[in-house]
Every structure is written in structure tokens, then in C-alpha cells.
């Protein structure tokens, strides 16, 4: 199976070279209703994130006296993949991903600044072509910054896998579903620290370092692009 993922000339199924990222497209602040919003396209994967808050918590019990609570809802549209698949909101897989994203952001967001409030992050995957998790994290990061919520650094994520003896960056759907070992990593670019690692397959230790290094390189590259997007979107109210 993995032989098909990498052609003899060293090209992947979508024509990329192993350490190549897919095309990134971002829009920051596209919605008026949400406090912060962002849209990210990574190749054919399309993801939307909207942030509400910090705000009054919906229920009395859902608050902490010393910091803000972060809630994440992760949804995948029924039309996002080749086969229509309707998922209920309680789908375990969706809840699990939401939980990972929440815990990825918690240590980075300065929640102590807003006791007794909540921050809601809503993620909607519109089209799936692999890399939904890292697209979601990148979109959420942009949306958080758009909402003006303080964070100690950006949170940037990327995936990498291993096939035909080579580490591959930013896996697409075909590569992900071919049972290639895949690692998703979330990094804080300024410090280089990793806040999240997610791998659900087996990968020999000898190759793990290469895959991890490639994923973090991907993160660094994405971090630059995300920062550019934020700066471009920065429009302070101007005097008339």
C-alpha cells in the first residue's frame, strides 16, 4: 500500500514532494456576529472557526472562580467527504477531537485574566481531505487572535507520516487512510515547545524522530504564514 503513496520519482499522489506543505489560504475576521473568526484551507481541506468570548457563562455551574473556561465544539459537515455522512453532535470521535483541541489551547490562553467567564470555540469542517485536526487548530488560533483573546504564543499544528522509507509532510486523505503512521503536532513557535502530539498508529522508533522533526518544521513554516495573515488583517479603527 505504501508503495503507491510515493512514486519512484519521489512524487506523492497529489504531485507534492515529501517535505512539501499543501497550499494554505486564510481569511481572518469574516463574520460580524462572532467575536473572532477565521477560515483556513489547507489543500482541499476547508475549516471554519468562530470564537465567542470571553463572556458571561451560560450556566452558573460552568464557571471557575479564578479563570475562564474554554469550551470547544468540533463539527464535520455531512457533505464534507465523498460520501454523505451525518454525524450526531455526540459522536465520540468528534468529542474526542474537541477535547484534544481544548487541552491544546488551555495552557496557552491566558485564562487567569478572565475569571468566571467562558470562551467558546466552534469549529466546522466544510471539506475533508486529510489534516482536519491541524487545520482546525490553526483556524482556531487565528480566530482566537482575531477575538483579541490573550495567548502567550501562537498555536500552530501540522501532521507528518511515514511511507516508503520517507517522512511525508501534511498528509492528505488518501495518505491518511492508507494506514500510514501519522503524527499530528501542535507547537508554540516562539519557544519551539510542543503542546500536543497525537498519533494513533505504529511507527518504529528509528523513524519517529524524522517524522517529528518534519512535522515541527511544517509548524514553523505555517507559523510564518499565520503571522502574516494576522498582520494583514490588522486594521485598527482609523481616523476619518
Amino acid at each position: 500500500m505504501s508503495r503507491e503513496l510515493l512514486a519512484p520519482e519521489g512524487l506523492r499522489v497529489d504531485g507534492r514532494r515529501p517535505p512539501e506543505l499543501r497550499r494554505l489560504l486564510t481569511r481572518v475576521g469574516l463574520f460580524a456576529v462572532a467575536d473572532g473568526s477565521a477560515y483556513v484551507e489547507l489543500g482541499n481541506t476547508k475549516c471554519l472557526a468562530a470564537v465567542y468570548g470571553p463572556k458571561e457563562p451560560r450556566t452558573q455551574s460552568a464557571q471557575l472562580h479564578d479563570r475562564a473556561v474554554i469550551n470547544v465544539e468540533y463539527n464535520v459537515a455531512s457533505f464534507s467527504s465523498g460520501e454523505r455522512k451525518s454525524r450526531t453532535r455526540r459522536d465520540k470521535r468528534l468529542l474526542e477531537i474537541a477535547s484534544v483541541i481544548k487541552r491544546t489551547f488551555e495552557p496557552v490562553v491566558m485564562t487567569a485574566t478572565f475569571p468566571r467567564s467562558e470562551i467558546d470555540i466552534y469549529i466546522q469542517i466544510l471539506q475533508l481531505d486529510g489534516g482536519a485536526l491541524h487545520a482546525a487548530i490553526n483556524a482556531s488560533c487565528l480566530a482566537m487572535i482575531d477575538a483579541g483573546i490573550p495567548m502567550s504564543d501562537y498555536v500552530v499544528a501540522c501532521s507528518a507520516g511515514f511511507a516508503s522509507g520517507t517522512a511525508l509532510l501534511d498528509l492528505n486523505y488518501i495518505e491518511e487512510s492508507a494506514e500510514t503512521p501519522a503524527l499530528t503536532v501542535a507547537m508554540l513557535p516562539k519557544s519551539g515547545k510542543l503542546t500536543m502530539l497525537n498519533m494513533e498508529s505504529r511507527l518504529h522508533l528509528d523513524h519517529f524522530k524524522d517524522v517529528l522533526d518534519l512535522a515541527t518544521e511544517g509548524c514553523k513554516s505555517l507559523a510564518e504564514s499565520l503571522d502574516e495573515a494576522v498582520r494583514k488583517a490588522c486594521k485598527t479603527p482609523r481616523p476619518i
Partner: peptide, 17 residues
């Protein structure tokens, strides 16, 4: 047809069914 008004689109819609 199936229309979805997720909590994402407005603070007036709560997450849930």
C-alpha cells in the same frame, strides 16, 4: 433538505440537538 443552525453562527443558538 436539512438545515443546520449551529451554535457557531450566533450566540442565540445553544450547542446541542
Amino acid at each position: 433538505p436539512n438545515i443546520d443552525l449551529p451554535a457557531l453562527c450566533s450566540p442565540q443558538f445553544r450547542p446541542g440537538p
